[in-house]
């Protein structure tokens, strides 16, 4: 019985398999086609709504950097003086990033512990703290910064608070994912000897998760340096603010712009390198 129908069954299987493959290819092709269509029409719309078109602008991309570089090269004798002049602005940008990362990490840690199941101080409030973190993460820094600039005036503090709020939300989420995987035995042990919640967290959870937390906080510091430079551009102090000023002068002050570009680029690269080296050490140290 079986040997008679076996070839037929294989045939059926094969046609079914080929049908599935065809269907899969069709779906894959459809998704690709829709994606390509979206990209093309999106590019077309963006091109149409831009002040200058893509093709007219393409050959001018190099003009501005060339102008800046040639002027900076002519005035290269002034470069060290300019670097010194804008160094305080760089320090301010880095300080904004550092303080906001520090505050964000501290509050993110508290929020994370309060919103992790099994560790939360008030288990019923876990969803509340999660939503709070979602909202803090969702509000772009610029929104908070602009509102705070209106209330506090320009300067580094609005940027610092804005980035700190966003960092709290972002780190809180990552921290709580790490804390979820923490071993609860030390916590139980501490609870059995009568430790209160703060002691359980400080002595039972934080030592377990500290390397991971530090590594995330360092990554966030890299991101925050960029964010604090950008926020300076809308009036929140630091390198971005100086850059905006020197750019509004136009040609003749390009040497200053070049110095600021150099400082910003250098700072980003240096801190990226330091932090990635240290992060590697942290994660390797954890494995060892």
């Amino acid at each position: 019985m079986t040997d008679i129908s076996a070839p037929a069954r294989i045939d059926v299987l094969q046609t079914e398999y080929m049908a599935l493959v065809r269907q899969r290819r069709l779906y894959g092709g459809l998704v690709l086609a829709i994606f390509a269509l979206l990209m093309a029409s999106g590019f077309y719309v963006a091109d149409a709504r831009n002040a200058g078109g893509f093709w007219e602008g393409l050959h001018r991309v190099g003009d501005y950097p060339a102008a800046v570089i040639s002027e900076a090269w002519e005035k290269r004798a002034e470069l060290p003086a300019n670097l010194v002049k804008f160094f305080p602005a760089l320090v301010e940008t880095l300080n904004i990033a550092a303080v906001s990362t520090l505050l964000g990490a501290i509050f993110g840690l508290i929020f994370a512990l309060l919103s992790t199941r099994g560790l939360a101080r008030w288990p019923r409030l876990v969803p509340l703290f999660r939503r709070l973190m979602d909202i803090m993460r969702a509000i772009p820094e610029i929104v908070i910064a602009l509102v705070l600039i209106f209330m506090l005036g320009g300067g580094p503090v609005p940027a610092m608070l804005a980035i700190a709020i966003h960092t709290t939300g972002a780190l809180g989420k990552l921290f709580s994912e790490v804390a979820e995987n923490a071993d609860l035995k030390p916590v139980d042990g501490l609870a059995s000897v009568g430790a209160n919640w703060t002691q359980r967290m400080l002595l039972g959870v934080i030592p377990q998760v500290a390397p991971n937390f530090l590594s995330y906080a360092l990554l966030r510091f890299e991101i925050n340096i960029r964010a604090s430079a950008i926020l300076g551009f809308v009036g929140a102090g630091g390198l971005g603010y100086e850059l905006k000023n020197s750019m509004s002068w136009g040609p003749g002050e390009f040497d200053e712009a070049a110095a600021i570009f150099l400082l910003l680029f250098g700072a980003i690269v240096v801190f990226d390198q330091i932090s990635s080296r240290y992060r590697n050490r942290l994660t390797e140290g954890r494995l060892a």
Partner: peptide
């Protein structure tokens, strides 16, 4: 890659807006 990443979106935005003018294309 390191260079493009290090220059950062802020500087790219400024450089590109000189060439393409303000608008969504520059941002993208």
């Amino acid at each position: 890659f390191d260079f493009v990443r290090g220059v950062d979106a802020l500087i790219w935005t400024i450089v590109l807006s000189r060439a393409f003018g303000p608008g969504p294309l520059t941002g993208s």
